[in-house]
């Protein structure tokens, strides 16, 4: 036992990783993205059309995933909800990465006082409990898709800055950066041409994880009634609605919960795989 006990788990698992661990999450994410993009053309019912006589119907041939408390088609709402989740999930981290990535690169490249100042600012932002900050932001900015995305984007700045700073620190010491500097390349050129390309793979891995975090955060805000405003479908909002009728029609809460779970799980899976490819050292985690 002693010899095997000392070995970390990951390398053994990596070697044996079976294809479905990549294929299934990838397939699920593809389906979600495809449905969300083509939602207008695949003949879905109007996600806002209410039919009170048909409320809380369980899944059937007519309504594949049943109907909700107001008799709206669940399948249609799930798919339009996916669109909401994906918009927030793609845009918020993108915003955070653009700003946070730039901040982190400056801090990691220039070091010294710039670094100290920027890290101080990031520390303050990280000192806030994230959800509390998101709640406060959306409560006062007003609830809309744009504001929720903006609030979550601002919240992802510190994390993105940390990742990009750490990677910039590591790459900035390399010989090719020194070589570029020796032949007289400007700081701007070194940052954009030498360091940035090396930053993209780890940032991409992190972006997949950030996406799932943001989708969950949007769900939480909408669940609390402070996210996407009411008629617009959102998974978190649907789970909150379904909670009212857990005894009579559990599917109204459990189906969106399941869809959200699978999506987040798939994104985590893919993020994990990409991270292992980018940085084999961290695969043990």
């Amino acid at each position: 036992m002693s010899a095997s006990a000392a070995e970390p788990l990951a390398p053994a698992r990596r070697g044996r990783r079976i294809p479905w661990a990549i294929a299934l999450p990838l397939a699920w994410v593809t389906i979600v993205v495809f449905c969300a993009v083509t939602a207008n053309w695949i003949g879905l019912a109007d996600p806002a059309a209410q039919e009170l006589i048909l409320r809380r119907k369980p899944p059937s041939a007519e309504f594949l995933l049943g109907t909700d408390n107001l008799g709206r088609d669940m399948l249609s709402r799930i798919i339009y909800g996916a669109r909401t989740s994906l918009i927030v999930g793609l845009c918020a981290p993108a915003f955070g990465f653009l700003i946070g990535g730039a901040i982190g690169m400056c801090a990691g490249y220039y070091r010294g006082k710039v670094d100290l100042l920027l890290v101080g600012v990031i520390d303050v932002l990280l000192a806030f409990p994230a959800l509390v900050l998101a709640l406060t932001f959306t409560a006062y900015l007003g609830q809309s898709l744009f504001n929720v995305t903006l609030a979550l984007g601002i919240l992802s700045i510190p994390a993105a800055a940390r990742v990009s700073r750490a990677n910039t620190l590591a790459w900035g010491n390399r010989d090719f950066v020194l070589a570029a500097r020796t032949i007289g390349a400007s700081n701007w050129r070194i940052l954009t041409r030498e360091i940035l390309p090396n930053l993209l793979p780890p940032m991409f891995a992190f972006w997949l994880v950030a996406m799932s975090v943001v989708i969950v955060a949007e769900g939480a805000l909408s669940f609390l009634g402070l996210g996407i405003p009411a008629p617009q479908p959102s998974w978190g909002g649907m789970i909150a609605d379904g909670r009212e009728a857990l005894d009579a029609a559990p599917h109204t809460a459990l189906i969106p919960a399941g869809v959200m779970f699978l999506t987040v799980l798939s994104l985590n899976f893919l993020g994990d795989i990409v991270r292992n490819m980018v940085d084999p050292r961290r695969s043990a985690l």
């Binding site: 969950v216 939480a220 669940f223 919960a257 779970f261 987040v264 799980l265």
Partner: peptide, 8 residues
Amino acid sequence: FLAVPSFM
């Protein structure tokens, strides 16, 4: 469980 938000 990492993929399960608390509200869910």
